[in-house]
Amino acid sequence: MLDDRARMEAAKKEKVEQILAEFQLQEEDLKKVMRRMQKEMDRGLRLETHEEASVKMLPTYVRSTPEGSEVGDFLSLDLGGTNFRVMLVKVGEGEEGQWSVKTKHQMYSIPEDAMTGTAEMLFDYISECISDFLDKHQMKHKKLPLGFTFSFPVRHEDIDKGILLNWTKGFKASGAEGNNVVGLLRDAIKRRGDFEMDVVAMVNDTVATMISCYYEDHQCEVGMIVGTGCNACYMEEMQNVELVEGDEGRMCVNTEWGAFGDSGELDEFLLEYDRLVDESSANPGQQLYEKLIGGKYMGELVRLVLLRLVDENLLFHGEASEQLRTRGAFETRFVSQVESDTGDRKQIYNILSTLGLRPSTTDCDIVRRACESVSTRAAHMCSAGLAGVINRMRESRSEDVMRITVGVDGSVYKLHPSFKERFHASVRRLTPSCEITFIESEEGSGRGAALVSAVACKKACMLGQ
């Protein structure tokens, strides 16, 4: 009897593995994704193909990295998701002549009506938060230079001027797309009239992360975010950046690689679950690469896999709870928690219980395998993109072996128990001629924006502006 049951459990697990095998990517698959990513990057950089390229390769006008001589107080704003952060950054000489960066910050959550109302409502709310922060720190009387981390696709015309191309991540505030974001912020500050600010720089969160990590390690020339969304930036040779005049030196390019796949480059790798996630998203047909990796989508992918296993009578005796059938019910943090389970399955059992399920031991094991399959594919897909960037940098610099540091931020990278190990191992397999160091950014977005502002202020002083 026991043997029969054991055989049935083994057969069930084997069927589960057959279904989950769809998520496995072979090294040849990853090399294919990497080569296609490089081709799209090239198209994004070139003037004649930029418009139709899915990977936009947006110039950021960040050319210099901090040298350690900029000092002063800077205000930093960070808008990239449902939370908005205001930070005071003091850049100065530390002990023994070292450079020191001290920060104080406060988080504000953005109400739904500000995210989806008008641009005026959104930026009025942001300036209200700045006003509140300055009151708390008794700094209303000071006109501070301000660095703005704005983590949406922007076409820069200068370091302090950028046109919002399109909202992502659930934002829909009308009247912002096609307009200068810094102008919208300046107008809102003017409307309030109770404080003055000098907006000197606007950067993407990947750029802010790279600059913040450069402060720790001067070989950091790539910034990457794996959180709600997924994106990367890197220092490109100016001669390859056709959208900006000049051939000397390097400029940081914001790849906006989340949109890779929007022209069909990933079609052969998309599964039924991916198509369902895409169809029910706020932007169907867009940001397809990001939807395979980002935390906004990972939990939902797992939920759809679990429903398939229920329908195949391989999980929960073929019956799903009402909660499990509800879109968004299986949160991405559950994926991390399930994979963090120590082996007694308590954590998995508790999560499934909150979803109205009474799982068996085998159910718990199957749910864990589903989570591992989805998150491992995410790590491997992400590795193909980064390997594409790094191999490109090595080739354009004609280096036999390139040493490089990548600064990384984002909740999936930082909080998932195995993502970074799987990701690092896969990147290294795909970049055999590179020695890569990964560092995690601390308060990256805010500190990085302030350091970019410090560079901009120093330049302005040198130019006598």
Rank of each mutant, 00 (worst) to 15 (best):
L2S: 14
D3K: 03
D3I: 02
D3L: 03
D4P: 13
R5P: 10
M8R: 07
A10S: 15
V16M: 13
Q18M: 04
I19N: 06
L20D: 01
E22G: 04
L25V: 07
L25F: 06
Q26Y: 03
E28T: 02
D29H: 15
D29K: 05
L30F: 00
V33P: 03
V33A: 08
V33Y: 00
M34N: 00
M34A: 07
Q38S: 02
K39R: 09
E40M: 08
G44V: 01
G44Y: 00
R46I: 04
R46T: 08
L47Y: 15
E48K: 10
T49F: 09
T49P: 04
E52W: 09
E52K: 15
L58A: 04
P59S: 06
P59F: 03
Y61F: 15
Y61W: 11
T65S: 15
P66D: 10
P66G: 09
P66C: 09
S69D: 14
S69P: 13
E70W: 05
V71P: 03
F74T: 12
G80Y: 03
N83T: 15
F84L: 13
V86P: 04
M87P: 05
M87K: 12
L88V: 10
E93H: 15
E95L: 13
E96A: 10
G97A: 08
G97V: 09
Q98H: 03
W99P: 08
W99R: 09
V101Y: 04
Q106A: 08
M107S: 13
P111W: 04
P111F: 02
A114N: 07
A114V: 15
T116R: 13
E120A: 04
E120G: 09
L122R: 04
F123Q: 00
D124L: 03
Y125A: 06
S127A: 10
E128W: 04
E128K: 13
S131A: 11
D132F: 08
D135F: 04
H137W: 07
H137V: 09
Q138F: 03
Q138V: 06
K140T: 11
K140E: 04
H141N: 11
K142P: 05
K143L: 09
P145G: 06
G147M: 11
G147W: 08
F150T: 11
S151K: 13
S151C: 10
S151I: 10
F152Q: 14
F152Y: 11
P153V: 08
V154M: 13
R155I: 12
H156G: 14
H156N: 04
D158W: 12
D158A: 13
I159T: 15
K161W: 07
L164W: 12
T168M: 13
K172Q: 15
K172V: 08
A173H: 07
S174A: 10
A176L: 13
G178E: 15
G178H: 09
G178I: 07
N179Y: 15
N180P: 12
L184R: 06
L185G: 01
L185Q: 01
R186N: 03
R186A: 11
D187I: 00
K190T: 08
R192Q: 06
D194K: 11
E196W: 04
D198N: 14
V200P: 05
M202F: 11
V203L: 05
N204S: 10
N204Q: 09
N204E: 08
V207Y: 02
A208I: 03
T209H: 01
M210Q: 00
I211K: 02
S212W: 04
I225P: 00
V226E: 00
G229L: 06
C230Q: 04
N231G: 07
N231S: 13
C233Q: 00
M235V: 07
V241C: 10
E242M: 01
E242H: 13
L243K: 12
L243V: 06
L243H: 15
E245V: 07
D247N: 06
E248Y: 08
E248P: 03
G249R: 03
R250S: 03
M251E: 01
V253L: 07
T255F: 11
A259L: 11
F260Y: 13
G261N: 00
G261S: 01
S263Y: 04
S263R: 15
F269H: 13
F269T: 04
L270C: 05
E272R: 10
D274W: 01
D274L: 00
L276R: 13
L276N: 13
D278E: 03
D278H: 05
S281P: 02
A282E: 06
P284T: 08
Q286A: 13
E290W: 08
E290D: 14
I293R: 00
G295D: 14
K296Q: 15
G299T: 02
G299H: 00
E300N: 00
R303N: 00
R303C: 01
L304P: 04
V305Y: 01
L307M: 14
L309F: 11
V310F: 04
N313Q: 15
N313H: 12
N313I: 07
L315R: 00
L315H: 02
G318W: 04
E319R: 06
E319S: 12
S321Y: 04
E322W: 10
G328T: 05
F330L: 07
E331A: 07
R333N: 15
V335A: 06
E339F: 04
D341C: 15
G343W: 00
G343E: 06
K346H: 13
Y349F: 12
I351A: 07
G356E: 07
G356W: 03
S360H: 04
S360D: 09
T362S: 09
D363P: 00
C364R: 01
C364T: 09
D365C: 03
C371G: 02
E372I: 10
V374N: 01
V374R: 00
R377T: 00
C382G: 12
S383K: 04
L386R: 00
G388V: 11
V389P: 00
N391T: 08
R397N: 13
E399G: 08
V401L: 07
R403F: 07
G407K: 05
G410Q: 02
V412Q: 07
V412T: 15
H416L: 11
P417V: 10
S418Q: 15
F419T: 00
F423R: 00
A425R: 03
S426I: 06
L430Q: 03
T431Q: 07
T431S: 08
I436A: 01
T437D: 14
S441A: 13
E442C: 15
E442I: 09
E443N: 07
E443H: 02
G448W: 09
G448H: 13
A449Y: 03
A449V: 09
A450K: 15
A450P: 06
A450M: 10
A450T: 11
V455Q: 14
V455K: 08
C457S: 14
C457T: 15
K458R: 11
C461M: 13
L463V: 13
Q465R: 04
